[in-house]
Computed example of a mutant assay.
Amino acid sequence: MIQDEYFSVHAGLTINVEPLDENTACPDEEAFRLEIPPLFRVASECSELEESTERLLSNFGSDDSKALIGYLGAQNTKINLLLSYVLSQQDDPAIRFTTRTFGASRLSFLSPTPLATGCTVRMKLFLTDPPAAIYCYADVIDCQPYSNQTGDAKGNSGDKNNYEVHLCYSQLLENDRDLLIRAALHVQQKLLRERAQQRSNS
């Protein structure tokens, strides 16, 4: 599957965006893997284990297993809460933004300053469902003026002119791409449930 085939959803993820200077190049695949902070590796592995556990538990159906499923579910919730807290410590407010759209191939966000098309940025993405953090690199593929009437790129209220920046991932682990697919599907399923509920209420 080529990157353009991945769908994007309109949703706000917390991200950190750090543009590289002209003298800093995007690392190759081997250097990139060595550069990923250990905590981000742990977060990715925990999310993979959680998905495997969910598939395993779905095979249990007897009444005798309900207590075990409940216990394991509670332990998983505790781990997710702890993981979310630890990951939040990696969020840098100085370079924090919120996505307008995201997917497994690209994302967009609003910036108070323009980014040159073709420049490379170092990024951290913080997911809530599944709880995880992703470390990657991306290239700016488009940057256009955007008049935001409800708030600026960092969540402040008021009328402010921003720039809508579109990024395409240039270095991203395949496991992390899978996490982004799961996160996008979760957002899409949530929207579908909300629409179905609205139709039933009307």
Rank of each mutant, 00 (worst) to 15 (best):
V86R: 11
V86I: 14
L87M: 13
L87Y: 07
S88N: 04
Q89L: 15
Q89T: 14
D91V: 12
D91L: 13
D92Q: 11
D92R: 12
D92L: 07
P93Y: 09
P93L: 06
P93S: 08
P93N: 07
P93G: 01
A94F: 10
A94Y: 11
I95F: 13
I95M: 11
R96D: 00
R96S: 11
R96L: 05
F97E: 06
T98I: 12
T98D: 00
T99Q: 04
T99P: 01
R100Q: 12
R100K: 13
R100Y: 03
R100L: 12
R100N: 12
A104I: 00
A104H: 03
S105L: 08
R106S: 14
L107N: 03
S108I: 05
F109N: 06
F109D: 00
F109Q: 01
L110M: 12
L110Y: 09
S111P: 03
S111T: 02
P112C: 04
T113A: 14
T113K: 15
T113R: 13
P114I: 09
P114F: 00
P114Q: 07
T117W: 09
T117D: 13
T117Q: 14
T117E: 15
G118D: 04
G118P: 03
C119Y: 05
V121T: 11
R122G: 06
R122Y: 07
R122S: 02
M123S: 09
M123P: 08
M123T: 11
M123Y: 07
K124C: 03
D129A: 03
D129K: 09
D129Q: 05
P130I: 04
P131F: 05
P131R: 04
A132C: 12
A132N: 10
A133R: 04
A133C: 00
I134F: 06
I134S: 08
I134E: 03
I134N: 06
Y135D: 11
C136W: 10
Y137A: 03
A138Q: 00
D139C: 14
D139P: 06
D139V: 15
D139M: 15
D139N: 15
V140M: 03
V140C: 07
C143A: 10
Q144S: 12
P145S: 07
P145A: 09
S147T: 14
S147E: 13
Q149I: 13
